[in-house]
Write a protein that binds this DNA or RNA. Sequence first.
DNA 1: CTGTTATATAATAGAATTCGAATATAAAAG
DNA 2: CTTTTATATTCGAATTCTATTATATAACAG
Lengths: 91, 91
Amino acid sequence: MSRLKEQAALLKAVAHPVRLEILDLLTHGETCVQDAQELLDVSQPNLSQHLAILKKAGLADCRIEGPKRCYFLCRPTLVMNLMSLLSMENE
Amino acid sequence: MSRLKEQAALLKAVAHPVRLEILDLLTHGETCVQDAQELLDVSQPNLSQHLAILKKAGLADCRIEGPKRCYFLCRPTLVMNLMSLLSMENE
DNA sequence: CTGTTATATAATAGAATTCGAATATAAAAG
DNA sequence: CTTTTATATTCGAATTCTATTATATAACAG
């Protein structure tokens, strides 16, 4: 049952349109917040909040590079498989 | 972007431990509410609510059989693939 | 009809999510 | 130092989710 809770928590972290978009971005490679913001039409604080949620869920992490944070996927295969599942019209 | 919202909505419907358990049950075949309740440790009204959420998300539907409702998966392949993704420890 | 079984719906209260606004931090530039 | 750039954190209000309780509906039995 705690297994189910973990799985549900993971799904909850993904279950948001902006976070899906972030994850999709990250499948194309490491991205810093600034670059993501230009592509995503979200405010900077809100983007930070979403990134924090993904990080907490163990899906993303970041590397510090000067004043920038470069985010990347921790479980790229999982994310990519999930995305491809979602993108199938039927089944 | 509305595509993303739809995908997020689908994930949200799945992102709950009880609903994950229900979906898992349904992968084993059609199940009536009564039988599900015995296996799931949820109250009858709560179970009905969760089933309604899955139905609304287009993941499940039911067949009326006398006083019983037999629930089944509308997109079994999607659900099964999702479950198997979630059950992998890494990746 | 009346009661019983199986399920759904409505109402509510409390918890959690969401986003915007303001503020904080930390690195680098000057 | 002071300012600027890049990002994070905090707070609060609005919304949404969740579970419980109570009530409703629908089919069937007697």
